[in-house]
Design a protein around this nucleic acid. Structure first.
Length: 424
RNA sequence: GGAGGAGUGGCCGAGUGGCUUAAGGCGGCGGUCUUGAAAACCGUUGUACGAAAGUACCGUGGGUUCAAAUCCUACCUCCUCCGCCA
């Protein structure tokens, strides 16, 4: 959520900066409702002040017959206040409905562009391997090794689900542990294991609601949603809290499954592990002081890159343009891993600085010093990494001509020393 | 699932309709005293909107009343006991 005062005072600038996202957002309705609301607020507060004053006098008067006129008048004032409060509530709701659907302002450094074609590649790491045979796609490798079973997953649930078997299941689990150990031991993140369902307030705090409800799985019964990313529960840990400056930066890492409807991507990436309704992810989340958030994004990105470096998987880093960054983000770097099966770089991590956008929605604040006025923190997060996509990248990059897959050295301690996954 | 109890400031805790401007305590901050500290004493201590006056906030939403932390109502959360259960 943007600062309502900032919008009020910089309406044109806000409209212009939002226009770089590619969606035109007209804020004149906002301005009209805001003016109306502020006028009404002034009036109703004046009436309330009078009601409070007169009621105190009535309370002090022993002989109530002397103040019958006042009581009658206050009854009317009260009715008027109630009516105005209702009107005020409607205005506030309408205003908030607009405010909640306005995306974040892009960072000054975010490249301006219309679509993902305008994203800027900023570096590459590693050299894609030369294959002396035709590289296969991971779904073929996985099925031939009998470690991935998409057909039975379809029977169990439906399309876009996977059943991992044997070394496949163990590899997924090894990756989760490897990533968590790296981030907690080397990068000093605190591990969290949050609920995998959250309520509406949490989804609103990080920006998934109210705009993107159609992407979420909602459970029957209580008004809960399956999390589409650990960002939601982990960022909301400090919702409605005021932190101390000495606690910052707070760095959390969490493994969770993620559940996404993938509405609107029918027919895309239908094969394999790329786009699933349920996938595992290790997430990195930071709560930081505003002036440090740019540097903190760089280090969070480096922490995510480290996973690929240790696994010796080639990747590139892309600076997303204004037309491609997410609703809540001000700046985003994607890490894309090399997939020889399709000869493309595919997103495996997305690292974003949300500045105070989520903090304002979720009321996450801090004090610079004892007694200072609370200010909003900046929040950041990134995948460190998407586990399923890491597994498929390993299958494709480490595949051998005989169909087996070499286990990256860094993972062997997590695989009981296994060096190679071979068929039955 | 059944029965009962409880939600008040950073924390503990009083408050069952009107000087409540939320008592008192703890903690925090400032001061007096002290070589320094402790103790003692004095003062201060939430959030949002607003230039200010002021308004709102006692789990959440409705309601009653001139007036609600206090009464009514629905919901949420936590606790205790019973039952079931990974």
């Amino acid at each position: 959520m943007l600062d309502i005062k900032f919008i009020r005072d910089n309406l044109e600038q806000v409209e212009q900066r939002l226009a770089t996202r590619g969606t035109e957002i007209r804020l004149d309705e906002f301005r009209q409702l805001d003016t109306q609301r502020r006028e009404l607020l002034g009036e109703v507060e004046g009436l309330k002040a009078e009601k409070n004053r007169v009621s105190a006098v009535i309370g002090q008067t022993k002989d109530k017959s002397q103040v019958q006129g006042e009581i009658a008048r206050m009854k009317e004032v009260s009715a008027q206040i109630k009516q105005m409060d209702d009107q005020l509530r409607d205005l506030t709701e309408a205003l908030s409905a607009i405010l909640m659907t306005v995306p974040n302002l892009p960072h000054e450094a975010t490249p301006v562009g219309a679509s993902e074609d305008d994203n800027v590649e900023i570096r590459r790491w590693g050299t894609p391997r030369e294959f002396s045979f035709e590289a296969k796609a991971h779904w073929d490798i996985g099925e031939q090794l009998d470690i991935l079973d998409f057909e039975r997953a379809g029977k169990l649930t439906g399309a876009r689900f996977a059943l991992y078997k044997g070394a496949g299941a163990r590899l997924e689990r090894a990756l989760i542990n490897f990533m968590l150990d790296l981030h907690t031991e080397q990068h000093k993140y605190v591990e969290m294991l949050p609920p995998f369902m959250v309520n509406r307030d949490s989804m609103t705090g990080t920006g998934q609601l109210p705009k993107f409800e159609e992407d979420l799985f909602h459970v029957e019964g209580p008004d809960y949603f399956l999390i589409p990313t650990a960002e939601v529960p982990v960022t909301n840990i400090h919702r409605d809290e005021i932190l101390g400056a000495e606690q910052l930066p707070l760095c959390y890492t969490a493994y969770t499954p993620c559940f996404r409807k993938e509405a609107g991507s029918h027919g895309r990436d239908t094969r394999g592990l790329i786009r699933q309704h349920q996938f595992n992810k290790v997430e990195l989340v930071k709560f930081v002081e505003p002036e440090t958030s740019d540097a903190e994004l760089d280090s969070l990105l480096a922490n995510a890159e480290k996973v690929l470096q240790l696994l010796e998987l080639p990747y590139r880093v892309v600076d997303l343009c204004t037309g491609d960054i997410g609703f809540s983000a001000a700046r985003t770097f994607d890490i894309e891993v090399w997939l020889p099966g399709q000869s493309v770089y595919r997103e495996i991590s997305s690292c974003s600085n949300f500045r105070d956008f989520q903090a304002r929605r979720a009321a996450i604040r801090y004090r610079r010093e004892e007694g200072a006025k609370p200010e909003f923190v900046h929040t950041l997060n990134g995948s460190g990494l998407a586990v399923g996509r890491t597994l498929l990248a390993i299958l494709e990059n480490y595949q051998q001509e005989d169909g087996s897959v070499i286990v990256p050295e860094a993972l062997r301690p997590y695989m009981g020393g296994l060096e190679r996954i071979t068929g039955k």
